[in-house]
Design a protein around this nucleic acid. Structure first.
Length: 424
RNA sequence: GGAGAGAUGACCGAGCGGUCGAAGGUGCACGCUUGGAAAGCGUGUGUGCUCUAACCGGGCACCGAGGGUUCGAAUCCCUCUCUCUCCGCCA
């Protein structure tokens, strides 16, 4: 969430930012509740001071006729405090709920626009792959080569689940190893994170764990959820901590499963492995000083490009528009890989996303660092190294051969142990 | 899952209804001492909110978390979480 004083002191800018993002949030309510809360805090503090003072007067022995009026005064104060406190709790709760709807401020250079069509293409690696034959989409390829079984998964687990089979299993493992090795060489600490996290961590990261529109699977009666990304578990890693400024930036790489409800998502653009309820992903996460977050964001983008260009997968980079940013992000870049089987004649499909969330998540999660005796919130950034299911789409569709086989990208062969799949 | 023990500041550790934001020690910072260092001595050393022009100085809160008893709770009671030991089960 944003700093409440910032909201109060920059109400117009905050309102404009909300409008630019096409979101709904009530700035005036936040300011009103903030001031109401502050005045209630003042009131409770004063009443408590009186209570403490009153209690302090009767420490030693004293005759009952002196003690009794003090006890009576104490009882009266106790009731008043209880009443003001209950109002304070109520106002605080409302304030938190309203304030959490206010998105992060957007980077001044982030393109203003409503939806993904308004994203700004800023660079490209390779072009749409050309074929001397009619390319198949990954669903067809996977069926022909017996690599993915959607039908059985639908029966056993439900729609949008899948079994990876045969070489696809090794492809998944190879992609995660390939990505982790690159990240480790760049100073990211490799981790495998829990696949479950507490609701409060989800909320701190900026996810809404409940409700029909939520993309999160909540686990009944546990206060926990399946994670939609390791961003949650990596971002929660230092929650409530004050970090040593000398150890910043902290760069972590996390492998986890990702679970997404994707309620209502269907259609041509979501077919096959593109939008599924479960996939594996290697995520990058960085904690850094505020002044470093812009340059580290560029670094994360560079790493993502290195991973995909290293696989010879054509992609373009887009600077995400304000309407498509998501609440916690200050700025976001996506890599969109060329997917020959997407749409009529192939199309770009998102394979990575990197966001600079500045101090928006750190404030709720309480992640700070100490410098010159002062505590400040760190900046937190995240980025996809490889979302395996979508990377598999890009590989199958771009590297398909006329005979129906798949050529494995050279950089991956040491990890897969084979250089082609099929033909069958 | 069963039985027991525990959770106090950066760390160790006392306190078990008011004199406790919390003894003592360690660490750390600064100063004195020294040719320099060590030792020694002295001083200081949490976080958040809030009042204020001001981290000058006040106020409030925080002793795992939440609730309760009380005029008053680190101290008493309840619930929960976590850690440790033993048993059971198990990848």
């Amino acid at each position: 969430m944003l700093d409440l004083k910032f909201i109060r002191d920059n109400a117009d800018a905050v309102r404009k930012n909300i409008a630019d993002r096409f979101m709904e949030a009530d700035v005036d309510a936040v300011i009103r509740l903030f001031e109401e809360r502050n005045s209630l805090i003042l009131k409770t503090d004063e009443l408590r001071r009186q209570r403490n003072e009153n209690a302090g007067k009767m420490k030693g022995k004293m005759p009952p006729e002196e003690r009794e009026p003090l006890v009576a005064e104490g009882k009266k104060l106790k009731e008043e405090i209880a009443e003001v406190e209950s109002r304070l709790n109520q106002v605080t709760e409302e304030l938190n709920s309203e304030a959490s709807r206010i998105p992060n401020m957007a980077h001044p250079d982030a393109p203003v626009g409503k939806e993904d069509k308004d994203n700004l293409e800023i660079s490209r690696f390779g072009g749409p792959t050309s074929f001397s034959f009619t390319p198949k989409d990954h669903v067809q390829i996977a069926a022909d080569l017996d690599l993915v079984d959607f039908d059985t998964a639908a029966r056993v687990s439900g729609p949008k689940f899948y079994y990876l089979k045969n070489e696809a299993v090794y492809l998944e493992l190879a992609l995660t190893r390939y990505a982790l090795d690159i990240l480790r060489s760049k100073g990211f600490i490799p981790t495998i994170t829990p696949d479950i996290a507490k609701e409060e961590v989800l909320e701190g990261i900026g996810f809404n764990p409940r409700g029909d529109e939520s993309n999160i699977y909540a686990l009944e009666n546990t206060g926990t959820c399946l994670v939609g990304t390791a961003e949650i578990t990596l971002g929660g890693y230092y929650s409530g901590n004050i970090l040593d400024s000398a150890e910043l930036p902290i760069k972590m790489a996390g492998l986890s499963h990702c679970f997404r409800r994707e309620a209502g998502a269907a259609g041509q653009y979501s077919k096959g492995l593109y939008r599924v309820h479960q996939f594996s992903k290697v995520e990058m996460f960085v904690y850094c000083r505020p002044e470093d977050s812009d340059s580290i964001h560029q670094e994360l983008l560079t790493v993502e490009e290195e991973i995909f260009s290293g696989l010879d997968i054509p992609y373009r980079v887009v600077d995400t528009c304000t309407g498509d940013l998501g609440g916690p992000a200050y700025r976001k870049y996506d890599l969109e890989a060329w997917m020959p089987g997407r749409g009529e004649n192939g199309d770009w499909g998102e394979v990575t996303s990197t966001s600079n969330c500045t101090d928006y998540q750190a404030r709720r999660l309480g992640v700070r660092f100490k410098e010159d005796g002062k505590n400040q919130y760190v900046h937190m950034l995240n980025g996809t190294a490889v979302a395996v299911s979508r990377a598999i789409i890009a590989i199958l569709e771009n590297f398909q051969q006329e005979d129906g086989s798949i050529k494995i990208p050279a950089a991956l062969v040491p990890y897969t142990g084979f250089d082609t799949i099929g033909p069958k």
